[in-house]
C-alpha cells in the first residue's frame, strides 16, 4: 500500500499517459474513467518497487494496456452497447488534431499501440517489444505497416497530403 503522497505524485506524472492510452483504445468516457481509476488504484495497492521513473512509466503503460484489453475482451462489454457510446470523447479540440486522431483510431489496435509508443513516447522497437511482449521484428513490421496505413488514411481523407 503506497502513501497518499506517492499516489498523488504518480497521478501528476502519469495521468496524461494513461489518459492517452485510454483514448486510443476506448470508445467512451465512462470506460476511460473506469480504467483510469483502476490503473491508479492498482498502483496504490501495488508493492512493485521501481528501479527508475522509466521503469515506473513502463509499468503504467503495461497496466493500462492490459486493463483496456481486459475491458474490451470482457463478455459483458462485447455484448452491450452503452448509451454513452454516442458521446464523443472529449479532448483533442483542434480540428487538425481531431482528424489525425480519428485516422489513428480508425487503425487496428495493434497499430495504434506502436504508433503511440513510438511517435509520442519515443520508445525504440526493442523497448516496445518488451512492453508489448512481442518479437522485435514483429514490432518493426507493425510500425512499418502502421505508418503506411496511417499515411494512406490521411491521404484518403484529403488531410495535408503535402505534410504527410
Amino acid at each position: 500500500m503506497r502513501s497518499e503522497q506517492e499516489a498523488d505524485r504518480a497521478l501528476r506524472l502519469y495521468a496524461d499517459t494513461v489518459r492517452r492510452i485510454c483514448m486510443i483504445h476506448l470508445k467512451n468516457y465512462a470506460d476511460t474513467e473506469d480504467i483510469f481509476q483502476t490503473v491508479f488504484l492498482k498502483y496504490l495497492v501495488s508493492s512493485t518497487a521501481f528501479a527508475s521513473e522509466e521503469h515506473e512509466k513502463a509499468w503504467f503503460i503495461r497496466v493500462t494496456l492490459n486493463a483496456c484489453k481486459d475491458l474490451l475482451g470482457s463478455f459483458f462489454h462485447s455484448r452491450t452497447l452503452p448509451l454513452s457510446e454516442v458521446m464523443l470523447q472529449p479532448a483533442a479540440q483542434e480540428a487538425e488534431h481531431q482528424e489525425v486522431l480519428e485516422a489513428v483510431l480508425s487503425l487496428p489496435e495493434k497499430f495504434r499501440d506502436v504508433l503511440y509508443l513510438h511517435y509520442y513516447e519515443g520508445y525504440t522497437a526493442p523497448q516496445m517489444a518488451k512492453i508489448l511482449k512481442k518479437n522485435v521484428n514483429t514490432i518493426y513490421t507493425l510500425l512499418g505497416r502502421a505508418k503506411d496505413r496511417l499515411k494512406a488514411k490521411l491521404e484518403e481523407d484529403g488531410y495535408g497530403s503535402q505534410t504527410v
Binding site: L11, P90, A91, E96, V104
Partner: peptide, 20 residues
C-alpha cells in the same frame, strides 16, 4: 503531427479529481 495530436490529449481535471 502525430506527436502534437497525442500531446493535445490531457487527462481532464474532473477525471483526475475523481481518481484522487
Amino acid at each position: 503531427k502525430l506527436y502534437e495530436t497525442f500531446d493535445s490529449i490531457h487527462a481532464e481535471s474532473a477525471l483526475v479529481a475523481h481518481t484522487r
